[in-house]
Computed example of a mutant assay.
Amino acid sequence: MKKTYSLLAHLLRRPAGAWALLLLTTAGGLTGCENETMPVPDQGRDYYPLELGAYRIYDVIDTAYQANVPTVSRFQFREQVDTALEPDATGQPVYRVIRSRRTLATDPWKIDSVITVAVKGQALTEQRNNRRTVELVFPVQEGKTWNINAFNTLDSLTVVNRFYVGANQPFRITRGGQTYQYDQTITTVNDLAQDVNAAYTTVLRTTFARGIGPVYRVRRRFISRCDAVGCNPAFKQQGQSRSEVLIASGK
């Protein structure tokens, strides 16, 4: 008890300046505690950045098959974020991306199509040819699954047909003697166990690089030759294979 009274008396004898310093120190400590915030979990939205004027140029190899005979064409696509449209009904931003095409690097660009990209809650969607697909879901993480056709009528809302693989992994690809590599990527793939068999083949694969966007796309759809004996998947009766490799980007 005597020690308590002695401490109280000692504090009361302090000059006003000491009290002010004590109060400021205490207040600063409290403020510091109040300003501490938990770090926001990484959603991975920078795997598809959307900045007005930004563009990406792809080298495209397109092969069409008819009775197992391939016809190969090669050209370039440029995708450029052209306009930020009015927010949709949910208040989410919507962007118009102009896709242009040219055969040679010296040719002028000609508009090929328009893509509408929107971030809706935890999903990033693309609308091409009046069909909206879910290209990414957030947060981006290994093994996550979703329905790419959740916003169109191709599948029921409960179908799982898209997967994340290779989260935050490096990626490299060579095209035209040039090697392109990225430190952090994520790849989306379709369900090959469901979409590849003796009668038909469907492969949909896209690799996104952090801070850049899509850097590699593959689309393969084939129908095999089938007869009374069975189907021969090595014989492409009809179909198409297209690969797109990012060769330049900027603003």
Rank of each mutant, 00 (worst) to 15 (best):
P139C: 02
T201E: 10
F151A: 02
T206C: 02
Q178I: 15
R210T: 11
E135R: 10
L204Q: 12
R175Q: 13
R175F: 05
W146Q: 06
N147M: 06
Y182H: 13
Q141M: 14
V140K: 04
R132A: 09
E126Y: 02
V215Y: 07
A198Q: 12
R172T: 12
G211Y: 02
I186K: 04
R219H: 15
V189M: 13
V196W: 05
I186T: 12
T201S: 11
V203H: 03
D195F: 03
F222Q: 07
Y216T: 11
E126K: 05
Q141R: 15
R162E: 06
I148H: 06
N152A: 01
A150W: 04
Q127T: 15
Q178K: 13
A198D: 14
E126M: 05
R205Q: 15
V159R: 10
F171T: 08
T185H: 07
Q178W: 03
I173P: 02
N168Y: 03
A167P: 00
Q181A: 12
Q184F: 07
T187C: 06
Q178C: 03
P214F: 00
G166F: 01
T201R: 12
N190S: 06
R205C: 05
S156P: 05
N197H: 05
N147A: 08
V159K: 10
R162G: 05
Y164Q: 01
V165G: 03
E126T: 09
A209V: 12
T158G: 02
R172W: 03
A150P: 01
T187A: 06
P170V: 10
D155C: 06
N190W: 02
T206P: 00
I173S: 02
V165A: 10
G177C: 06
N130Q: 15
K144Q: 11
Q194Y: 08
A209R: 11
V196I: 15
G176I: 07
T145S: 13
T133E: 09
E142K: 12
N197Q: 07
L154Q: 11
P139D: 04
T158I: 09
N149P: 00
T153Q: 11
F171Q: 08
E142I: 13
P139K: 03
A193C: 09
T207Q: 05
Y180Q: 08
G143K: 08
Q194V: 13
N190V: 04
R132G: 00
N161K: 09
P170E: 12
L192G: 01
T206R: 08
T202V: 11
D183Y: 10
P139R: 03
E135F: 00
F208T: 07
N161Q: 09
S156G: 15
L157D: 15
V159T: 14
R210S: 13
R205I: 08
T133V: 10
I186D: 03
V196G: 07
L157P: 07
V137T: 13
G176Y: 01
L204A: 10
Q127H: 06
Y216P: 06
T207A: 04
N152Q: 03
Q194A: 15
A198Y: 04
